[in-house]
Computed example of a mutant assay.
Amino acid sequence: MAGQTGSGARARVMGIVNVTPDSFSDGGRLASVEGAVDHALRLIEAGADILDIGGESTRPGADPVSEAEELDRVLPVVEGVRARWDGPISIDTMKPAVARAAVAAGATIWNDVFGLRADGATETAAALGCEVVLMHMQGSPRTMQANPAYDDVVEEVAAWLAERAEAVIGAGVARERIWLDPGLGFGKTAHHNLQLLRGLPRLKGLGFPVLVGASRKRTIQAIDPMASDPLDRLGGSLALHLFAASRGADVIRCHDVRETVQALKVWAALEG
């Protein structure tokens, strides 16, 4: 896992490979296995440290897909990337069976927006021995943005993540293999997202590496109403990424890898 960020250090960059027809900003772009693998290789050339491959959209209002369909989407891509690259590959899934198959195909990280809460998920993670990302989400992708509410979003998310991490450790997952993700945009308003970014030191205080996914999020449109198109949110994404890194984020999950890597390098040079 990435070391602690700070002066002179750069957060690692996780490049997004969405093999879905309905993701919020790039759905349908990578419809073929060849296209998805080529995109993944371009992200590596652009400086991605990690690749995150997902076959089920988790955008607000998204409908679930079957296990079989998700496997058909992601397994050939994981296999294709692994045949050409020996770096870290993450499988973005809520389904234990998909995680098992993806790890068998070469994935080394299980990125679960549901925080390993599905039946059998913690036991599967323990058996696989891979690194896991536990993300906070209020509700489900279909309902999470209906009316998210918190008394203190930073403290509530931190408490939930701490409790979830301890439960996962109790199920047999090694502490050093756990990462935490506050889940920006997953059952949060723009205000909540900004509070969580400001409160990242509180999450870092839990003692686990922190992953932040702010890329092209609607929070940017809330600040800049002209950014209604997700593809018009690069500047805002970079600002959020740099702020997250300055608050201790270890991994930045993003679409625009080249620009993010460059921004983080320049920021680290200025710091160091």
Rank of each mutant, 00 (worst) to 15 (best):
P96R: 06
A97G: 13
A97C: 11
A99P: 06
A99I: 03
R100H: 07
A101I: 08
A102P: 08
A102E: 06
A102C: 07
V103M: 12
V103D: 00
A104W: 13
A105M: 11
A107Q: 09
A107E: 09
T108N: 04
T108C: 07
T108V: 10
T108I: 09
W110N: 00
N111T: 09
N111R: 05
N111M: 07
N111K: 08
N111E: 13
V113T: 15
V113D: 02
F114N: 15
G115S: 11
G115W: 00
L116S: 02
R117A: 06
A118C: 11
A118P: 04
A118I: 09
D119Q: 14
G120M: 08
G120P: 09
A121D: 07
T122K: 14
T122I: 09
T124G: 03
T124I: 04
A125F: 06
A125K: 00
A125C: 15
A126Y: 04
A127E: 09
A127K: 02
L128P: 00
C130H: 03
C130L: 13
E131G: 08
E131R: 11
E131F: 14
E131T: 11
E131Y: 08
V132Y: 04
V132A: 02
V133Y: 01
V133D: 02
M135R: 05
M135L: 10
H136S: 15
M137H: 03
M137N: 01
M137W: 04
Q138L: 10
Q138I: 13
Q138S: 13
G139L: 05
G139W: 06
G139M: 06
S140L: 15
S140A: 13
S140R: 12
P141C: 07
P141D: 10
P141T: 06
R142D: 10
R142P: 02
A146K: 15
A146R: 15
A146G: 14
A146P: 03
N147H: 08
A149L: 09
Y150I: 14
Y150A: 08
D151W: 10
D152M: 12
V153Y: 01
V154E: 04
V157P: 00
